[in-house]
């Protein structure tokens, strides 16, 4: 049974209009503003040393935060889905904490902890270790706000799958590492990938928490989102939108990589099944 044609077209029309208004138009606006001064001005603002440093910093922070959360998320999900232990629900709640608190609060936690007037600040300062207002603080804040993405993707799936496969592997004499590589990981591959992609997108785009711990030192502790704000505040609109467009491109590239990996591993899986 199908709906009348006009209902279908109306629903399609509404969805397309909505997508256009909220996704396509802003995306187009970012690129058209960025290219307003011509292609030359666009690239000049991207190779500006401060912009380059912001790009480097964002990539560095993401390169640390994503693998770290991949490991943490996988371990936490495995623990929660496979074992029953005292404090399990507390752990589950803790994983959700970064979703629940405002990113600004996440940043402030680190200021209270590592700031010069904070708990560990005086000791750190005496030993010449700089955490906040430097790269380590930005990494910590990013890891914190992106922490739930991988774990939250994996937990429901692993709970649903149960542990029969693993028990079967165990009874056939597989070692723990073999079970993990041959059974657990392949079972959760797609959810893991999805979690990593979300985590990656958020790590590159995080503003609030990073803003609090960054110190906004130009050319040193500004990530791309912070640099966009600074450029905008300096009336440098072309450069602001150029860097913003680069962020948008990174996001699009992430999506592209996702579908590419999906296609290749899908084909690999079928081939493997046939052999």
């Amino acid at each position: 049974m199908t709906e009348p044609a006009w209902v279908r077209w109306l629903l399609i029309g509404v969805s397309v209009a909505f997508l256009g208004l909220f996704l396509i138009v802003p995306l187009v606006a970012v690129f058209s503003e960025a290219l307003r001064g011509g292609v030359g001005a666009y690239f000049t603002s991207l190779i500006d040393p401060a912009a380059l440093s912001a790009i480097r910093l964002t990539l560095l922070v993401t390169a640390i935060a994503v693998p770290a959360n991949l490991a943490f998320g996988l371990a936490a999900a495995w623990l929660i889905a496979r074992f029953d232990f005292v404090g399990r629900s507390v752990l589950l709640t803790l994983i959700d904490l970064p979703f629940a608190v405002s990113p600004v609060i996440s940043g402030l936690i680190y200021v209270l902890l590592f700031g010069l007037q904070g708990w560990l600040g005086p000791w750190l300062s005496a030993h010449n270790v700089q955490i906040i207002f430097a790269v380590p603080g930005i990494v910590l804040a990013t890891v914190f706000v992106t922490f739930p993405y991988v774990a939250r993707e994996l937990i429901p799936l692993m709970q649903e799958q149960g542990s029969e496969d693993e028990q079967a592997a165990l009874s056939l004499g597989a070692s723990g590492w073999q079970i993990f590589r041959r059974v657990t990981l392949p079972n959760v591959k797609w959810a893991l990938l999805y979690g990593v992609i979300l985590c990656n997108a958020r790590a590159m785009g995080e503003f609030g928490a990073v803003s609090v711990v960054s110190g906004h030192i130009r050319g040193e502790t500004n990530t791309m989102p912070l640099h966009v704000e600074i450029l905008y505040n300096e009336y440098n609109f072309v450069a602001a939108f150029a860097v913003a467009s680069l962020l948008a491109l990174l996001a699009l590239a992430t999506l592209g990589a996702k579908s590419l990996v999906e296609r290749f591993s899908g084909a690999g899986q079928r081939g493997g099944g046939a052999a």
Binding site: A63, I64, V66, P67, A68, L70, A71, V135, P136, V139
Partner: peptide
């Protein structure tokens, strides 16, 4: 990737 990340850190 994790090792590279830690080294970079």
């Amino acid at each position: 990737a994790t090792t590279a990340g830690l080294l970079a850190a």
